[in-house]
C-alpha cells in the first residue's frame, strides 16, 4: 500500500513527556501532488513536517517516504527530500550565490550537475544581480526566495515547506506562492506544505488535511470537501470543523 504513495503516514503519535503533540494521525500524499496541512497554531503541523523531514522521531506509528521508513532509512530519505523551516532565515555574511553554490556542491558531484543546479537556483530565486550581494542586505521576501530556491533547485522528489509565506507581505507571499506552483509542476516535485492561510492552501494545494490539537479532522480533495460540507470556502469549512471539534470536546 505505502509503496504507491510519496508519503504514507499511519497512526503517527508524537509525545514530549506527558504532552501529546500528535494523537495518531494518518494521511498519504501521492507523487506529484501538492498537499496542504491546515490548522491553527499549535495544531501539530510543524511537528508532523519535522518528522517527515527526519528531524524528529515518531513516538509510535509509522511514516514512509517513497516506501522507505523514516527512522531506519533516514539517511537515504535525506537524499530525496528538501525541507524549508517556518520563518527560515539566511546566513548574513555570505552571498545568495555562495549559498546556492554550497548546496549544489553538497548534493551533486559532477561539475555539470553543480552548474545546472546553481543556474536553476538563481532562476527560482529570481532576484537578479542581488544574488551576488551578502544575504544580510536582502528583504524578508528575498531571503525566503533564496531559501525556496535552495529547497527546489536540487530537484527533490519531495519538498516539505513549513508555512512558506508566513511573515511576508501580500506581494511577497503571492510571488512565493506562484514560484512554488510553477516549479513544482515544472520539475515534478511532490510538495507537502503547512499553512494557516486558507486562501493560499485553496490556491496551491490539490488535497488538504485539516489538523487541530494533534488530530486530523478531515482530509481530501478541496473541491470534494467543499461540496461535502456545503460551504464555498476552505476558511468556512475550517471554522465549522474547528468549532464542531470544540463542541464535541466540551460535551
Amino acid at each position: 500500500m505505502s509503496n504507491e504513495h510519496a508519503v504514507y503516514v499511519d497512526r503517527l503519535v508524537k509525545r514530549y513527556g506527558k504532552t501529546v503533540a500528535l494523537r495518531g494521525i494518518s494521511f498519504y500524499v501521492d507523487e506529484g501532488e501538492v498537499f496542504g496541512l491546515v490548522g491553527p497554531n499549535g495544531a501539530g503541523k510543524t511537528t508532523t513536517l519535522r518528522i517527515l523531514a527526519t528531524l524528529l522521531l515518531p513516538t509510535s506509528g509509522s511514516v514512509k517516504i517513497f516506501g522507505m521508513d523514516i527512522v531506519k532509512d533516514a539517511n537515504r530519505i535525506r537524499r530525496l527530500i528538501s525541507y524549508l523551516p517556518e520563518e527560515a532565515g539566511t546566513y548574513k555574511n555570505i552571498t545568495g550565490y555562495e549559498y546556492l553554490s554550497m548546496i549544489a556542491h553538497i548534493y551533486f558531484n559532477s561539475k555539470k550537475d553543480i552548474e545546472e543546479a546553481i543556474e536553476l537556483g538563481i532562476k527560482i530565486a529570481g532576484i537578479g544581480d542581488r544574488v551576488y550581494d551578502k544575504m544580510k542586505t536582502y528583504s524578508k521576501g528575498m531571503q525566503r526566495r533564496i531559501q525556496l530556491a535552495r529547497a527546489l533547485m536540487v530537484k527533490p522528489r519531495l519538498a516539505i515547506l513549513d508555512e512558506p509565506t508566513s511573515g511576508l507581505d501580500v506581494v511577497q507571499a503571492i510571488e512565493i506562492r506562484e514560484t512554488i506552483r510553477y516549479f513544482a509542476k515544472k520539475l515534478g516535485i511532490t510538495i507537502v506544505m503547512s499553512s494557516h492561510n486558507m486562501l493560499e492552501v485553496q490556491e496551491i494545494c490539490d488535497r488538504v488535511a485539516i489538523i487541530d490539537s494533534g488530530r486530523i479532522l478531515e482530509q481530501g480533495f478541496i473541491t470534494e470537501l467543499l461540496s461535502k460540507y456545503g460551504v464555498e470556502s476552505l476558511e468556512k469549512l475550517f471554522i465549522n470543523l474547528i468549532r464542531g471539534e470544540t463542541r464535541r470536546e466540551s460535551a
Binding site: R50, A53, T54, L55, N75, R78, R79, I81, S82, Y83, L84, P85, E86, E87, A88, G89, T90, Y91, I103, I106, Y107, Q147, R150
Partner: peptide, 13 residues
C-alpha cells in the same frame, strides 16, 4: 535563531 540549523540537519550529509 534563523533556523538554518534545521535546514542543515535535513541535508544529505
Amino acid at each position: 535563531e534563523v533556523k538554518t540549523f534545521e535546514t542543515l540537519l535535513t541535508l544529505p550529509i
